[in-house]
Design a protein around this nucleic acid. Structure first.
Lengths: 144, 144
DNA sequence: ACAAAACAGGATAATTTTATCTTAATTTAA
DNA sequence: TTAAATTAAGATAAAATTATCCTGTTTTGT
């Protein structure tokens, strides 16, 4: 569904959010350990998310990653997926046709549109705060 | 969504079906040209589909690919996707967790389950014959 | 039997994705 | 002001996916 990079990005953002809710900043090392991801690769992904203003990065001792408390509830999964994988997953033709459209559709156009729209609205309406709270309360997990 | 290999596999199968409905066997070269795919790579994918009995391959002069007329309506997209990409797309955790389950779910488990089940039933209920007929009648396209 | 057409399969190459390594820049605390 | 901790960024490497090439095998028409 998503690239590995995007999976790490989503998990990292949720973990950063869970910590930011508690007012804690968390280091790359802490994130990678907690979500079970390769540290250097995760650093690259966090660079992207920081550039795209999904998360804040702070250099130096006691640095790390955080999200402004008042912004956590505004961040949705689509922000992360768009930053890392782009919008191909819900924009591109399911069979890879360059010019697939309503007027000249591929054979699965209509059926896939439904699934892709479901996914799109899922990503656009699921905010990171609710996911972070599930993780915080032990109802959901980022490593298994 | 799907791998390139799977996209080619789906398009090739639809095109073979469209020809088989008319009682015509079609060569690799003809398929690759019609679906706009790299010929040698398409050959590999058709090998897989032939091994998995999704299509029949016939060697030698006047050989090519075909599907038994009475079987066309029984082939669904899931048969093709399973043969090429496997079932990861509707079985695996959306965040890549190895042991994600109802009891110990990832934070997006429930929401993704809905989308994945939509996709699963789409693939399992869409038969190749209906798609082939759309292509045949010029309502849908395999190359654009 | 033989030549030609066509698929099968193995080897190789190119590209993309994933992952690592190294050095630089930044920040803080002592 | 210097050392340590930490992210940024560029270079490189490994692995997976996509794509090509070459040789072998099968089939058919002559």
């Amino acid at each position: 569904m998503f690239s590995k990079a995007c999976e790490y990005g989503i998990k990292a953002t949720i973990y950063i959010a869970a910590n930011s809710i508690d007012g804690k900043r968390i280091s790359l090392k802490g994130i990678a350990k907690h979500i079970d991801s390769p540290e250097a690769f995760t650093a690259k992904i966090l660079q992207i998310l920081a550039r795209e203003r999904v998360v804040n990065s702070v250099r130096g001792i006691n640095g790390g990653f955080e999200i402004d408390k008042h912004r956590i509830q505004d961040i949705v999964l689509a922000d992360i997926v768009n930053a890392i994988d782009g919008d191909a997953i819900y924009k591109n033709c399911g069979l890879g046709l360059k010019e697939c459209s309503e007027a000249r559709p591929c054979p699965v156009h209509d059926k896939f549109k439904i699934v892709r729209n479901n996914l799109k609205s899922l990503l656009e309406t699921t905010n990171v705060k609710s996911l972070a709270m599930e993780v915080d309360s032990g109802l959901a997990f980022l490593k298994l």
